[in-house]
């Protein structure tokens, strides 16, 4: 497909898909709590309403932070869809995450400051796992580009089974799901003031929510990659990973940041390294 058309299509479809998935999440969460829950379209209503609110800001950097967060999420997803370099993509995503953290830091508010401090730790927890997953891809394709995965004739999951688990954990952390929701909770009814998002409001919060839609699609895209040979299986894997984070969200409570970091740096990185080591031995990666 023409890359420009593909990019434009992604720009339109990704937020719709992400929003629907988020709506599904709220619906499922409600059902798990024996409630009816909001309409599936609820995330779109929320974003639409936030866009119509009166613009309020504590300083002019907040808007920059929110805008850069959205822009990098979009850029990262576009790079993913257009088969660009996965490692560059991850650092573009990191740029957005850092900007969101700085946006929280830019306000002298105890809530957003604490949220930002903790978001730094969340980043510390998931970042190595994302990079290691991409390294796992490189070991098998000899390239960091997303296109090289599509050129592979066997599903990645056969050689990278553990990365399905770590990627599920990463999605949980990225979406602020329990027990990893140390900086803010995904759903408002789990936390009132909402950590790092406390001081963002109106359009800025809408931009951040929109960025979450794109980011969700991107993160699930990484899971989809594990079975790219049959897109239905890939999609099933992605959905399974997503629903396990939702389930995890509903059956666990928030843990401390100490637990988060030590858990991810022992179990998370340990499992990822074990999988990578297996790939090294299996494929006899040439020096």
């Amino acid at each position: 497909m023409n890359p420009i058309a593909l990019g434009a299509l992604t720009l339109v479809i990704a937020p719709i898909l992400g929003g629907l998935l988020m709506g599904l999440d709220r619906r499922i969460t409600a059902r798990l709590q024996n409630r009816l829950g909001p309409p599936i379209l609820q995330p779109f209503y929320d974003v639409g309403k936030l866009m119509g609110k009166q613009p309020v800001a504590c300083n002019s950097f907040q808007g920059v932070a929110a805008s850069l967060y959205l822009m990098t999420s979009v850029l990262a997803l576009l790079m993913f869809v257009l088969g660009q370099d996965l490692l560059v993509l991850l650092f573009v995503l990191a740029l957005g995450a850092v900007m969101l953290i700085l946006g929280g830091f830019s306000v002298k508010s105890p809530y957003s400051q604490l949220g930002s401090q903790r978001e730094v730790l969340q980043m510390l927890a998931y970042e190595p796992l994302l990079v290691l997953m991409v390294v796992g891809v490189y070991l098998q394709t000899g390239s960091f580009s997303a296109n090289s995965v599509l050129a592979l004739d066997r599903p990645l999951l056969l050689t990278m089974p553990i990365f399905l688990v770590t990627q599920t954990l990463v999605i949980g952390i990225k979406l602020h799901k329990s027990p990893f929701d140390v900086s803010a909770s995904h759903h408002a009814h789990q936390e009132l003031v909402r950590g790092i998002y406390t001081e963002f409001s109106g359009l800025q919060l809408a931009l951040i929510e929109l960025a979450h839609f794109y980011e969700l699609v991107l993160l699930l895209g990484f899971v989809w990659f594990l079975w790219h040979t049959n897109w239905l299986v890939g999609a099933a894997l992605a959905l399974a990973a997503y629903f396990s984070t939702i389930l995890m969200d509903n059956v666990t409570a928030r843990m401390t940041w100490r637990w988060l970091v030590s858990f991810m740096w022992t179990w998370g990185i340990g499992l990822a390294v074990a999988n990578l080591a297996a790939i090294y031995f299996m494929l006899r990666v040439p020096r």
């Binding site: 950097f61 953290i101 830091f105 830019s106 401090q117 730094v120 980043m123 510390l124």
Partner: peptide, 15 residues
């Protein structure tokens, strides 16, 4: 990333 971000955060904490 962690230590640079923390430092930048302190610089940007606006009055």
């Amino acid at each position: 990333v962690m230590f640079w971000t923390k430092w930048t955060g302190r610089l940007l904490t606006a009055d």
